[in-house]
Each structure stands twice: as C-alpha cells, then as structure tokens.
Computed example of a mutant assay.
Amino acid sequence: MTPRIGLILFTALLMQCENPVKTPLPGAETIPAQIRQTDCFNGGNALFHAARITEMGNRASGTPGYRRQIDYLKEELAKYGWTCREQGFEKETPQGPVRFVNLRARFGKTPNFLDPVRGLLTCHIDTKQGIDGFTGANDGASGAAAILETARILSGEPARAGNLELVFFDGEESFAEHMDSDDGLYGSRHYASAMQQPLPKWMINLDMVGRQGKKIRIPSMTPQ
C-alpha cells in the first residue's frame, strides 16, 4: 500500500459510509452518554473518548494523569480485540531524567510485535507542562480519540487490522518552553530507533485533528 493510498483510505474512514458529515454551525456539541455501535467512523464516539481523556487533567509525561490515560487506552482497545504493549524508556531532559512510556497496539489476542506490518497509525498523548488549566483536548486527546474509534471500526476487518500497528507516543512535547533538537519528540525518536527491517510502507500521524470543521487533505508532496 503506497502512502497516498493509505491516506486516501484513512480519510475515507473519517467520513460516513454514504455521505460526508456536514460541518456543524459554531457552538458546543453534545458529548454522547455512551459509545454507539455503528458500522462507520462515528464522530460522536471520538468526542466521547476525548472528553473522558481530558477529564484526567494534566497528562504530562510521568504524571498520574498520564498513567490513567494509558490504562484507559488499553482497556478500550482490549474491548475490540487489540493487544497492547508498553514501550518504556528513560531519557535525560532539561528537568532531569524522565521515565517515558509509549503504547503500542496490534490486533489479535497473541500478536507478535516483531512481525512486520504494512502501516502505522500514530499520535502523541502527552500534554505540555507549565500551562495552567491546559488539558490538551485538541493537542493530544483528539488524536487518541480518533485512533480509538478507528480501532473499533477496523476490528470488523481482521485482515486489514492485522497489517497495522497503533502507536501512542509519549514525550513529544518539550520540557523547556520551546522545542529544539535535543528537547521534544522523545517517544517517536525512541520508537524509530528500535524499529526493525522491513520497515512499514506508510505512516499516518494524527495531531490536533479535533478542531470543528477540520479538513484533512492529501499533501502535495505525497508519493503517487
């Protein structure tokens, strides 16, 4: 599967089976009381997950909130047949050594995490430190919520799900005010350094995808 085809398929998954969802008028949306079992990607379900995650408050690396988030993701993914594995590691930061935890998920009860996959669907789930009242509804929670809903849909297509790894990165935010070459992207760098051949054919990273009316387009530099 080429990167372009992978992105087209995922973009299609974000739409209703028959008709695209029209952009709603500005205003607060109602958070569903529970997950709806639909055949298509359901935006309300993603909103439900985003709300549950933001209720955990600060989810910066190494915090109790981050641990609660990891446990929530594992519990929700297990409901639809995904098995999770934590990828823990320690790195030096401007605030000293920090223990990070990436979360990987593959479909099935006993997947071999060493087996190659064709694609990766990823996001980051840590929140930025030092911002009063910031709970990362869009910057962090929206990507995780979209992946949880996508995982629910893909559970009905075992062959496709089995060719995919879901990765929730820790430590993507910097510990200083601004990111530089040494501070930030801790989780994705560690994950990439541990990857084995053959590498996946494509990767889609979701970041800040929860804004109302958000449009996902195919980048012009995407290979044909």
Rank of each mutant, 00 (worst) to 15 (best):
I5H: 13
I8D: 12
L9K: 15
L13D: 08
M15A: 12
Q16D: 15
E18Y: 12
K22F: 10
I35F: 00
R36H: 12
N42I: 01
G44F: 00
A46N: 08
L47A: 11
L47I: 10
F48G: 00
A50H: 03
A50D: 05
E55R: 13
M56D: 00
G57A: 06
N58G: 05
A60G: 12
A60I: 08
G62N: 04
P64S: 01
G65L: 03
R68E: 12
D71P: 00
D71A: 14
L77G: 05
Y80F: 13
C84P: 04
R85K: 15
E86C: 11
F89M: 02
K91L: 10
E92D: 14
Q95A: 14
P97M: 01
R99G: 08
R99W: 09
V101M: 12
N102A: 05
L103Y: 08
L114K: 14
D115T: 13
D115H: 12
R118A: 14
G119S: 13
H124T: 10
T127S: 12
D139A: 10
S142V: 08
S142L: 07
G143D: 11
A144G: 15
A145G: 05
A146Q: 09
E149F: 04
E149K: 00
R152C: 05
I153E: 06
S155D: 09
G156D: 14
A159N: 10
A159Q: 12
L164V: 08
V167Q: 03
F169H: 05
E172L: 07
E173Q: 07
F175A: 02
M179C: 09
D183E: 08
S188K: 10
Y191I: 04
S193V: 05
S193Y: 03
M195E: 11
Q197A: 15
W202K: 01
M203C: 15
M203K: 11
N205C: 14
D207Q: 03
Q212T: 13
G213I: 04
R217G: 09
R217F: 12
I218E: 06
P223L: 07
